[in-house]
Computed example of a mutant assay.
Amino acid sequence: MDVITAIEGRQSIRDFDASRAVSDDLIKSMLGTAARAPSGSNIQPWHVYVVRDELQRKITDACVERFLSGDEGEAEYHYYPRSWRQPYIGRRRETGFGLYGLLGIDKSDKAAVQGYRIRNYQFFGAPVGFFFTIDRDMEPGSWLDYGMFLQSLMLTARARGLETCAQAAFCPYHDSITPLINAPEQEMLVCGMSMGYPVAGSLINTYRTSRLTADAFTHFPS
């Protein structure tokens, strides 16, 4: 798959075929390719934890239990703005209403919304999950580097016939997850990721978010 096709076709997949395994050798190969992502002074600030089988189920159980109890948790960093404003809140609403609308879920239907949100913690059925951490003393530049690493992994997965869904939904439950994956205290959870082969014909996998044209965000100062 060429780079442009990989980028333009990438989307968050939310329904994976649990019966199709992803081998350790393939995972290591993809991570090795992703590690060619650029990082300032080549410090390569990423740590990766691969989970499957029983450990994956333990993480799912811990997160679902907290979620169903009403415990929303608290992430260690602010992924989104503290105060929403336009145009960002409008883009967020478009995405949320579009996804729930496709599934026929009314956002006022708390049970249906809750049922869908639980799928995050079930890795959307993916046979393998990833958790990415960064040392707490790293600065914003290393977080920028991390984004390039994550994008490289997602594109590499597409080149190998797999798909992904990067998930900040796990971050509020970092204090349940990091002990299970044996991450040291000096590491902070950046996000999780589900990876596998998508379920063919799945309705939710047809959902595509819109994008601005380059003219909408590009400036040529004179």
Rank of each mutant, 00 (worst) to 15 (best):
21 A>G: 08
52 R>F: 01
56 Q>S: 12
5 T>K: 14
150 L>R: 00
92 R>D: 01
5 T>W: 08
124 F>E: 05
66 R>L: 13
36 R>Y: 10
26 L>T: 10
21 A>Q: 08
35 A>H: 07
99 L>A: 02
148 M>T: 04
152 S>W: 02
29 S>Y: 10
28 K>N: 13
58 K>Q: 14
51 V>Y: 12
148 M>D: 06
113 V>I: 15
33 T>E: 15
132 F>M: 00
30 M>D: 01
29 S>K: 14
164 T>K: 10
45 P>C: 04
65 E>K: 11
34 A>C: 01
70 G>K: 09
211 R>Y: 11
114 Q>S: 15
139 E>H: 12
106 D>C: 08
196 G>Y: 14
151 Q>N: 08
157 A>I: 05
40 G>F: 05
222 S>Y: 03
141 G>T: 12
171 C>D: 10
64 V>I: 14
69 S>Q: 14
64 V>K: 08
111 A>D: 15
99 L>S: 01
197 Y>H: 15
67 F>T: 06
217 F>W: 13
113 V>G: 10
93 R>S: 00
47 H>S: 08
97 F>G: 01
47 H>Y: 02
42 N>C: 03
173 Y>W: 09
109 D>N: 15
60 T>H: 13
156 T>W: 04
111 A>P: 05
56 Q>V: 02
105 I>M: 09
122 Q>D: 04
137 D>L: 12
92 R>S: 01
199 V>F: 03
143 W>A: 01
132 F>W: 12
158 R>C: 03
57 R>K: 10
182 N>Y: 10
12 S>V: 02
98 G>E: 05
219 H>D: 07
20 R>M: 11
169 A>T: 06
127 P>L: 13
12 S>C: 10
9 G>M: 03
69 S>Y: 11
147 G>T: 06
73 G>N: 02
66 R>W: 04
178 T>P: 07
80 Y>A: 12
170 F>D: 05
151 Q>R: 09
106 D>H: 06
154 M>A: 15
16 F>L: 01
22 V>G: 11
162 L>C: 03
129 G>P: 04
109 D>Y: 10
88 Y>D: 05
96 G>C: 03
70 G>N: 04
74 E>T: 11
36 R>I: 00
35 A>Q: 01
130 F>Y: 13
147 G>S: 06
158 R>S: 07
1 M>Q: 08
81 P>A: 07
70 G>M: 05
163 E>C: 13
73 G>L: 11
109 D>V: 11
51 V>F: 11
78 H>A: 15
59 I>M: 07
42 N>Y: 07
40 G>R: 00
29 S>M: 10
121 Y>D: 10
124 F>K: 03
110 K>L: 15
164 T>H: 06
107 K>G: 00
138 M>Y: 14
218 T>C: 15
2 D>T: 07
113 V>F: 12
23 S>V: 07
188 M>V: 04
